[in-house]
Design a binder for these strands. Structure first.
Lengths: 255, 255
DNA sequence: ACGACCTTAACGGTGCGTTAAAGTTT
DNA sequence: CAAACTTTAACGCACCGTTAAGGTCG
């Protein structure tokens, strides 16, 4: 008993086009192909094979992976490994969805309160040579004095585009400790007024605020974003000047 | 202050190619394009806009939807609606992942026990004219007698390809009640030995067994599959003959 | 003038749906 | 002979990555 493609499609609930595609990519070859007409013929057993294929696909396995499994149908070893992998990726996608849900709920509350939701994105930044001065200050505004001092101490042609402040301690801890810095495009001789160092490469959770804003809402959002995802701070927070914007960066490591 | 595409790409963590694509599809137009050279220029504010775009994308929103949101930035109404939709789809995908996880765990146990996991697929079937005889029997094999009776009572040219049994009661309930049926390709006059009726359209959870198997494992798998997903049986179970296979179908309705 | 930028254009990959033109079966 | 099937071939979708060939900037 052999089925032609249309009947097989009807029985299996898969379109004829999909069956032809599965033939083309070698995933499910018809049991027989008429050499004169090119008509494809399938057996009832192939209904079961197709069901296995569709079940795996519904679990999110790619057709290429399914083909590997079906072709080298051998190892129970391979099967176990695939299933474990699958389990991992499913757990991952559940966790991602859970976190996204938390974000959406927070965004709904913010929209309710007529505030614009704050977007957080993750970036990788390479390490960077910088010149900086570290200072304890009473208010955020006080830090600008040190920025100017740093600026004047350096040869202009060596200064890059990136400028900002590293915050080692923030208002929560009783006093502020900031470290204005500028990127260095070239090596400069050491000097007394500032430190030369490498800002380490890092993975950063970032968000933006207008420069004239105090950014408190952004800081709060980033802190919550990290705690929801189970990240920890892995260094001083960074503020980057992008007039008229301010980019606030939290260096993170997982757990 | 304007950035060229490369610098903007570096700052935002998005590739220049992606930025060109976003320009092409009208999702993020550069603030300025040099009419002579075609160079694109971006503002710092666009970093924030881009961050919102990427945040939405990471939540699984399509670029087309994001474009709609960004362009008609008006209604908080629209925003709320989108967020609620998003919440729904996220909950859905979490639920799907949860169910898939249960399946994978079950499959792992089966592989452990050296059994081949049974694939379940869902199909929609249209309604079907059938002729049938209903009978109470002691064992599954006893039903074949009625199948032959039905077979002999019908004009061969009216009989279609689909043949099987509807099970109204199975062994669990103390006795068996089955109803062999055949598809009718054309109307036939009523006759005493069998009923003529329409098998209703249904959504079916299906799995396969070799015809010589009793199919108990398949039944058990289908029952568990339904309970995990919160489906209920919506009619008699169907067994379809596809020699040498048997397709077992549970008609389902959600919850 | 050299390298590091920028431009458009084109193909590739996934998993098919959707015509279109032509041959086969009943 | 017509209707209902089948075949291959081609384009399209989303979201870019990846060359390739050629202008621009410092």
């Amino acid at each position: 008993m052999l089925y032609r493609i249309g009947e097989f499609a009807g029985l299996s609930g898969v379109s004829a086009k999909t069956l032809r595609y599965y033939d083309d990519i070698g995933l499910l070859r018809p049991a027989n192909v008429d050499s004169r007409t090119g008509y494809r013929h399938y057996t009832p057993e192939q209904l079961q094979e197709l069901a296995s294929i569709r079940a795996l696909k519904d679990l999110g396995v790619s057709l290429a992976e399914i083909r590997l499994l079906v072709s080298r149908k051998g190892g129970g070893k391979d099967q176990r490994r695939l299933l474990l992998e699958l389990k991992g990726s499913l757990q991952q996608s559940m966790e991602t969805a859970r976190q996204s849900l938390q974000w959406v709920d927070a965004a709904l509350r913010e929209v309710q309160a007529n505030e614009k939701p704050i977007a957080v994105i993750v970036k990788r930044r390479p390490s960077l040579w910088i010149a900086s001065v570290r200072a304890k200050v009473k208010t955020y505004a006080d830090i600008t004095r040190f920025e100017q001092e740093l600026w004047k101490a350096l040869p202009q042609q060596a200064v890059g585009n990136v400028r900002g402040v590293l915050w080692h301690r923030c208002a929560d801890s009783g006093f502020l400790e900031g470290e204005p810095f500028v990127e260095l495009k070239e090596r400069v001789p050491a000097r007394s007024v500032c430190d030369l160092q490498q800002l380490p490469a890092a993975t950063l959770a970032c968000a933006y605020a207008p420069e004239d804003d105090d950014g408190e809402r952004v800081y709060q959002t980033l802190r919550r974003w990290m705690s929801v995802r189970g990240y920890r701070l892995s260094g001083p927070k960074r503020e980057i000047y992008l007039h008229p914007m301010l980019e606030i960066q939290f260096p993170i490591t997982s757990a």
